[in-house]
């Protein structure tokens, strides 16, 4: 067997010390060594984003990092988002707005959206769609994922649930007729 290296990684607030092979992928370390299987693998080549986690404050694709590269780092996975039975606003948003169907992309999608909202608490729809470009979903067509992130952004802005805000989003649609921005003239 190959030589191993000691690493120390804090995941969801808990510090782990492990001996790992240098080639062990971070995603396998999280899933198989730590047993946190909420982080998924969809492609192994960094395109699908199912394995997205937060590492030292930034969203990363954990299938593209080795576990040894996370030595000394702090990681946040989907399992670390809810506290004391209270769902994170993003988790609430995805539930309320039907932002998931099969649920496989969902943890990675939520972690990428988490990264977005950390940097931009009030993103526009194009900003949300752009920020989620590294996360593929095959089920939802993305419309409800966008609404989920908007829902979360509203919740995070105000601790009290502003339900009245999101009903009006129902009618949100690009219009051909009104406004100069409706039909960009390229």
């Amino acid at each position: 067997m190959a030589t191993t290296h000691p690493i120390t990684v804090t995941v969801n607030g808990k510090t782990h010390h492990n001996e790992v092979e240098p080639r062990l992928l971070l995603v396998h370390y999280i899933r198989d060594t730590l047993g946190l299987t909420g982080t998924h693998i969809g492609c192994n080549t960094s395109q699908c984003g199912a394995c997205t986690i937060i590492l030292d404050g930034e969203a990363v694709k954990s299938c593209t990092l080795f576990a040894v590269q996370a030595n000394g780092s702090e990681a946040l996975t989907i399992e670390g988002l809810a506290h004391d039975g209270q769902l994170h606003p993003l988790q609430q948003g995805f539930w309320e707005e039907h932002g998931l169907q099969c649920g496989y992309c969902t943890p990675g999608m939520i972690m990428s959206a988490y990264d977005l909202l950390q940097h931009n608490p009030d993103p526009s729809e194009p900003e949300i769609r752009h920020a989620l470009e590294g996360n593929l979903c095959r089920c939802t067509g993305y419309q409800n994922i966008v609404k989920s992130v908007q829902h979360a952004a509203r919740l995070m802005k105000s601790e009290s649930l502003p339900d009245q805000g999101y009903e009006t989003q129902e009618g949100h649609r690009p219009a051909l007729v009104e406004g100069p921005e409706a039909v960009p003239s390229s």
Binding site: T37, H40, T77, L87, L100, Y104
Partner: peptide
């Protein structure tokens, strides 16, 4: 959906 609570917290049980 009633399916969602486990899936949004990473507690789904997929093949791998």
């Amino acid at each position: 959906r009633l399916e969602d609570p486990e899936l949004i917290v990473g507690a789904g049980n997929y093949m791998d």
